[in-house]
Write a protein that binds this DNA or RNA. Sequence first.
DNA 1: GGTCGATAGATGCAAACGCATCTAAATCGG
DNA 2: CCGATTTAGATGCGTTTGCATCTATCGACC
Lengths: 153, 153
Amino acid sequence: MPAKTTESPVRLAAETWESLFRAQVAVMRKLQAAPAFKALALNEYDVLFTLSRCPSGWLRLNELNDKVLLSQSSLSRLVERLEKRGLVERTPAPEDGRGILIRLTDAGRDLQKQIGREHVRDIAALVGPALSAAEQQELLRLTEKLRAAVSVR
Amino acid sequence: MPAKTTESPVRLAAETWESLFRAQVAVMRKLQAAPAFKALALNEYDVLFTLSRCPSGWLRLNELNDKVLLSQSSLSRLVERLEKRGLVERTPAPEDGRGILIRLTDAGRDLQKQIGREHVRDIAALVGPALSAAEQQELLRLTEKLRAAVSVR
DNA sequence: GGTCGATAGATGCAAACGCATCTAAATCGG
DNA sequence: CCGATTTAGATGCGTTTGCATCTATCGACC
């Protein structure tokens, strides 16, 4: 396929985004269908995952909201569900009477790890054969740069 | 930031996917908030867009379903809504009594073009400043390669 | 040609979603 | 220090979503 992307900057950006988006859809399709997500919706897993990556273990609800593609109200109720299932804990934020802090329970951490292992295998099975290591590193670099630039403020 | 990605292939693939996914979330956040999507949800726009890109103008429902991250039933009802709004048309497929064909109406095409213009501007404003033209081309190439590899069969 | 599994799409239903709004706490300005 | 604005999160409500299932047609095979 010839590179027809020397057209206009606007067009190049649009095509780049569309390609990124379609790739995300294609991969996500496969991942969602995996048995790892019988127990937990992807958004729910994403919250557990994000909490597991947090150094202090605690995250504010609004911090979580930056990571996940959900409205504030939906995230609020999603966390409520996770709490009912005993996967996360809530505490009023000590320094801000409006806020709440969330962290994984032991059960939540276990479930995240278990699903995470399967999930990582699924990802590797999809992405590994598709791109060389060097290409993956470059894709990682570019998407990280894009995310950082878009997320300013 | 040092490249810690020379670890294992599995880990590299997982980090690459996570970075791609987060970038997608970050960009999508901004795009969804744009005034272009007051009139039409993103999934709905995506269907109109896909139809507008189709050479024959007609698409089967199941072909459409490959492009969009929606279940079959959700897409069925989404198209139903678009039809009620006069944006798409349905016809029984001539060669397959089970299938239906969908295409844009004139109103649908107009709306897609109108939103599309705004949308492309929004994308360019986000992606353009984030990556150089060469980087965008490389990102386009890598995501297209990934999508193609994942979509086989 | 008739039966049988597979495929396309529609539909009932409960769960999840976003928007608008509400309450309460923090921050700002005088 | 007090009223006004902003911010964090919860909640009512109508809409959208996915799962399971249903109907109808297609294709394969005997």
